[in-house]
Simulated scan of single mutants.
Amino acid sequence: MNVLDCIVIGGGPAGLSASLTLGRARRNIALFDDGTNRNRVTQASNGFITRDGIKPQAFKEIARKELENYPSVSFINATVTEIIKENEQFTVKTSTNQEFVSEKILLATGIQEIFSIPSIRKFYGKSLFSCPYCDGWEQQEKQLVVIAEKEEHVLHLTKLIYNWSQDLIVLTNGVQLSIEGQTELQKHNIKIIAEKIKDLIGNDGYLESIEFETGASINRTAGFVAPSYYRPNHFAEKLGCEMDEEGKVITDHVGRTTQKNVYIAGETERSKPSSLMISAAKGNKAAVSVITDLIMERF
């Protein structure tokens, strides 16, 4: 079995960017992706220079097409199920019962959302969003709802969104804000509803109204939510990468983890969301670290 220079796990902007940089450095790599990228539900990816408003799938297809220019890059459409480290090498196993061996591993599998109100998922990416920098422009001056439960999230998200629209209703789903928190929002004429949410109503991903357990309801057609996030796998932990007290993977800030030959890029590192551009930049940085280490080790 041929030993690859590096295996990149995750074909989002971080993994694609890393693969491009590795390919241009003539590294023999394999990029694994199973199509579960977080922004797959998004109608348009905004804010990436030269690609503003592009559909996420189109973004991936352009990147994949560019990678075809580099014969040392292979694309594997499969889910990685296990990574085993043996004798300074890594064996990667997939859901399709394939095995690959590599000197280095770059983790770029990203994160996924958790919603405390399951019906949010039906509208997420079409009429409910989490990032005002990504989707605020399209929602400007609309009557918006903000759904968040932790006070710090309520205040932070509401203040951000107020930049695009001042017609806001904040829903805390049963959580009472502090007097200070309430006062801070109410002085800007922002209504706060603390009642428990029963359901979100709409069609084909487009919100129409929100019902409360009390029987009351409000009409809103768009808004922003504050999800929780998690890593969809535990590869970093199982490979022995050290984490800080907040669960962030400790790195040297250019992709190297505390485990030799294990690198990380994009949202996987922080377990927090970031833009396409930031994730792509981190993918480039991590790839440069991989290339530099390979060159220095072999020189």
Score class of each variant (00 low, 15 high):
residue 272 K to A: 03
residue 145 V to R: 03
residue 145 V to M: 04
residue 8 V to T: 12
residue 256 R to C: 07
residue 14 A to M: 13
residue 244 D to Q: 08
residue 212 F to G: 06
residue 212 F to N: 05
residue 11 G to D: 15
residue 3 V to L: 11
residue 259 Q to N: 08
residue 32 F to K: 01
residue 21 T to Y: 15
residue 244 D to T: 00
residue 78 A to W: 13
residue 112 Q to F: 04
residue 10 G to F: 03
residue 77 N to A: 12
residue 160 L to Y: 11
residue 224 F to Y: 13
residue 278 I to S: 00
residue 41 V to R: 06
residue 47 G to Y: 02
residue 250 I to S: 08
residue 260 K to Q: 10
residue 282 K to C: 01
residue 130 S to V: 15
residue 241 C to H: 11
residue 272 K to G: 12
residue 111 I to W: 06
residue 161 I to K: 12
residue 213 E to M: 12
residue 184 E to H: 13
residue 100 F to K: 01
residue 237 E to T: 01
residue 68 E to Q: 14
residue 224 F to L: 11
residue 101 V to N: 08
residue 39 N to M: 02
residue 265 A to R: 03
residue 172 T to R: 07
residue 125 G to D: 08
residue 111 I to Q: 05
residue 88 E to C: 12
residue 199 D to Q: 11
residue 202 G to M: 14
residue 33 D to I: 05
residue 6 C to I: 13
residue 290 V to C: 07
residue 245 E to A: 07
residue 123 F to E: 05
residue 125 G to K: 10
residue 198 K to I: 14
residue 253 H to F: 11
residue 202 G to E: 13
residue 191 K to Y: 01
residue 215 G to S: 11
residue 60 K to L: 02
residue 298 R to I: 10
residue 8 V to D: 09
residue 117 I to K: 06
residue 275 S to T: 05
residue 177 L to R: 01
residue 36 T to L: 06
residue 125 G to T: 09
residue 37 N to I: 06
residue 227 P to R: 11
residue 126 K to H: 07
residue 139 Q to E: 10
residue 73 V to A: 00
residue 191 K to I: 13
residue 227 P to M: 11
residue 15 G to F: 10
residue 14 A to T: 08
residue 69 N to D: 08
residue 11 G to V: 05
residue 18 A to D: 05
residue 26 R to E: 15
residue 142 K to E: 10
residue 187 K to T: 15
residue 208 E to T: 09
residue 74 S to C: 07
residue 178 S to C: 09
residue 185 L to Y: 00
residue 114 I to W: 07
residue 36 T to P: 03
residue 149 E to W: 00
residue 109 T to V: 06
residue 261 N to Y: 02
residue 111 I to H: 05
residue 280 A to T: 09
residue 131 C to H: 01
residue 247 G to L: 09
residue 148 A to I: 14
residue 2 N to W: 00
residue 291 I to A: 04
residue 267 E to Y: 03
residue 87 N to W: 01
residue 62 I to F: 12
residue 279 S to R: 00
residue 189 N to Q: 15
residue 7 I to Q: 08
residue 12 G to L: 01
residue 163 N to Q: 15
residue 282 K to P: 07
residue 50 T to M: 10
residue 89 Q to S: 14
residue 196 K to W: 14
residue 249 V to N: 02
residue 165 S to T: 09
residue 273 P to G: 12
residue 250 I to R: 07
residue 16 L to S: 00
residue 174 G to K: 07
residue 189 N to D: 15
residue 267 E to A: 04
residue 14 A to V: 01
residue 203 N to L: 02
residue 252 D to R: 09
residue 222 A to H: 10
residue 66 E to P: 04
residue 96 T to G: 08
residue 138 E to V: 10
residue 268 T to S: 14
residue 75 F to C: 07
